[in-house]
């Protein structure tokens, strides 16, 4: 199957993952996804078949997002944009209670360490195994398990 078809199949999940990597900044997530797709299509990121295409694409998206976050000018720009939700309002959800719930969960997730946030998102939203999540995050299985356990504890504590 061509890369274009595989990208089209995983696009929704890849966008959700990019949003999570960019701390819910929609514009930045779209930029990251664009850059990641270009890497896939121009061959600068090569799929070697050692994992599923989705897992590999998630790793490319994550790496692209991290690379952008290290960009010093974007970092300076983000200092001015202290409240990303206020700057980029998400599409209106059906009701206010739902919006509040989402904002509360996102705020709690944002307070977790990056890898803890990532492992929760990959396992509970994208239905990856902890082993696959470890592959996406580029850490050992043992480290991923530790992040997973701490993330569950910390998120539960923050939402208590």
């Amino acid at each position: 199957m061509s890369h274009e078809k595989l990208l089209a199949e995983t696009h929704g999940a890849a966008f959700a993952w990019a949003l999570s990597c960019c701390r819910w900044r929609r514009q930045e997530a779209e930029d990251v996804l664009h850059a990641a797709y270009l890497k896939v299509l121009d061959g600068s990121a090569r799929f070697d078949g050692r994992s599923s295409f989705k897992t590999w694409l998630f790793a490319v998206v994550r790496k692209t997002a991290l690379g952008r976050q290290r960009d010093w000018l974007r970092w300076l720009g983000r200092l001015a944009d202290a409240d990303p939700d206020a700057a980029e309002a998400p599409p209106a959800a059906p009701n206010l209670a739902h919006n509040l719930d989402r904002a509360r969960v996102r705020a709690a997730l944002d307070k977790l360490a990056r890898r803890q946030r990532e492992v929760l998102d990959l396992v509970f939203y994208h239905d990856l195994t902890v082993e696959e999540a470890a592959g996406v995050m580029g850490v050992s299985l043992g480290a991923a398990r530790r992040h997973y356990a701490r993330a569950k504890e910390n998120l539960a504590e923050r939402l208590r």
Partner: peptide, 29 residues
Amino acid sequence: MKSLLESAHSGDTPPPIAAILARPAPRRR
């Protein structure tokens, strides 16, 4: 935990893939 993560992602409709791919290539800073 799963329902929490689903609520965090709710309402995030992805833009069409064609719109993403049609963006101009980013210029290197």
